[in-house]
Design a protein around this nucleic acid. Sequence first.
DNA 1: TCTTGAAAATTGGTTAACCAGATTGGTTTC
DNA 2: GAAACCAATCTGGTTAACCAATTTTCAAGA
Lengths: 235, 235
Amino acid sequence: MKLEIVTKSDQNDIQNQIILNIKELISFKNLEPGDKLPSERMLSEKFGVSRSNIREAIRKLEFYGILVSKPQSGTFIAEIGTVAMDGMLNDILNLEDPDFKSLVETRILLELKTVRLASLRRTDEDLKKIREALEAYAEKVENGEDAVQEDLLFHLAIANASGNSTMNTFMLIITPEIITNFEKYHVCDSNQSVRGIKEHEEIYKAIESQNPQLAKEKMKIHFGTLYQYCYHSDK
Amino acid sequence: MKLEIVTKSDQNDIQNQIILNIKELISFKNLEPGDKLPSERMLSEKFGVSRSNIREAIRKLEFYGILVSKPQSGTFIAEIGTVAMDGMLNDILNLEDPDFKSLVETRILLELKTVRLASLRRTDEDLKKIREALEAYAEKVENGEDAVQEDLLFHLAIANASGNSTMNTFMLIITPEIITNFEKYHVCDSNQSVRGIKEHEEIYKAIESQNPQLAKEKMKIHFGTLYQYCYHSDK
DNA sequence: TCTTGAAAATTGGTTAACCAGATTGGTTTC
DNA sequence: GAAACCAATCTGGTTAACCAATTTTCAAGA
């Protein structure tokens, strides 16, 4: 178990080292947005790492919008300006893994917004999906089973109905880590789940009646416990 | 240009097709969290695609926390439960590319929060970095140059000072797309930039004096124009 | 001198062979 | 019978050769 983690972080180190090398190369060669990077082969030779490592690092920088690679042509620096590129590269190199508190804080922020947007923009189709998620959750809880997953799917359905694809994506990104940490720290107990049904129903009703203010209010209540955890804990 | 876009989207289609295949395989074989997926070779043969395509799809699902691959051992289904896995896979397959409105909406949401957190948690080191970003921005504007990048670096410095790694990452993710769209739609003109200096300074002062409410207020004012764009446009 | 166009070189993507570490199953040993 | 051990096998990762599309080069033709 230990070993595996070490390799993972080593892997990350290598990737960050490559990104640092690329950054220095760009700076040294005075490359500007739109310019072509040396080929993957050349980079792998120059940095003394495998081409797949290079490709991986390039993918990461592509994800953050700093590079754009065109098939059979080359990898180019995105048109975001030298200054932004340099600043962002620094930030990417300094990125730290999210802690649980940071996740919860972000989740609450996102959800208080998505629930508002959902109540404004939801289609009938959206509403139906939320209803289904709600019922799946209620059924699980009533059977006394663990319903963390169904809980989160209800919230994801709301994010989906918000009509904001960015927030929807972000919710998807943090969800698995929320689940893992919930199970690790046992944040919710079964009593809370029973109460959760009523809270979910209230949120649903607010969305149904297209009342954004009420929806946000009910979501805030629903997050009551988490809120406390987030703002009164040292974790 | 057209061709390139087509290949990109084709590429995406292939990846989504693989993810769909994996989803069906999991369902068909009744695989549960913790179980091992067939090896990459086997999957590539079964689905009739290259192993690198398989690896790429697995990486994507790893990013969304659904799979975990261990070197020299296998790829495993993450411990997030069958229901959550299934629901998330559906959501991932239906993910749509973010539109500009969605980006701006999310940016405003994030920044009104990060500026509050930054004013509460900023260290002296953070403050210094924000100050530097502010000065770089002011200098560019006073020279009559375009300062979109410096503008965003100022905001990223605030996100960095927020002490919330998740929000920081999210800000990094949306920044390049914001830059690209700003340049495309010419959202800001130079007059706005001059006014922007004063606004940035006010935000800085609020963070310096650790006044979260004021900081949020000043940020809201700063977003005035964008706000309008966001809520009174059909785009 | 400029245009044209075909061949050569270069590129990211793909494929297949290979590697080292992990797993597995059976055999030995006590 | 159980524990220890070893070798065969299987795994994700790496490497190197290959591919098809793109870009470059440069000589032929006007």
